[in-house]
Write a protein that binds this DNA or RNA. Structure first.
Length: 125
DNA sequence: TTGTTGACCCAAG
DNA sequence: TCTTGGGCCAACA
């Protein structure tokens, strides 16, 4: 059973290009409806991992529940995230807002979730 | 075993 | 819409 970080990364990797989701939704998918902060913590940790293993995780597709990029600028910053999303065809306005009605990822279905949580998914890296 | 810290969320006002 | 206050969770010292 992967630890919480790995579970978060596994879900984030499944967000298709041009779609976004929120920290809270990811937490909910992982059967921890109130662990949104921990999801953000996991992604923050991701930034410090320069391992190839973590190189292709589309962290830019994770935003907050308001459809806003809430990244406090550190190295990459909110602007970088906006650029990455625009490059995928997601419209991001000057206020760093995204139209969730258009770009929200519907999420994993229950069968896929079960695969991840039970650890016998073939796509578990 | 605490206490602290975050790329969060929710309800009230 | 915006601001507050409270809560929740995982990692770390």
């Amino acid at each position: 059973m992967p630890n919480f970080y790995e579970q978060v990364y596994a879900v984030v990797r499944r967000i298709p290009p041009g779609k976004v989701t929120s920290y809270g939704r990811i937490a909910y998918m992982l059967a921890r409806p109130h662990a949104a902060r921990a999801v953000g913590y996991a992604l923050n940790n991701l930034k410090d991992q320069h391992d190839e293993k973590y190189a292709n995780i589309p962290w830019q597709r994770v935003i907050n529940r308001e459809g806003r990029i809430s990244t406090v600028n550190r190295e990459h910053g909110a602007h970088k995230q906006a650029e990455l999303l625009r490059a995928e065809g997601v419209e991001v306005d000057e206020e760093l807002r995204i139209d969730l009605d258009k770009y929200l990822w519907s999420g994993l279905n229950l069968l896929e979730l079960d695969d991840i949580l039970s650890g016998n998914s073939s796509s578990e890296f």
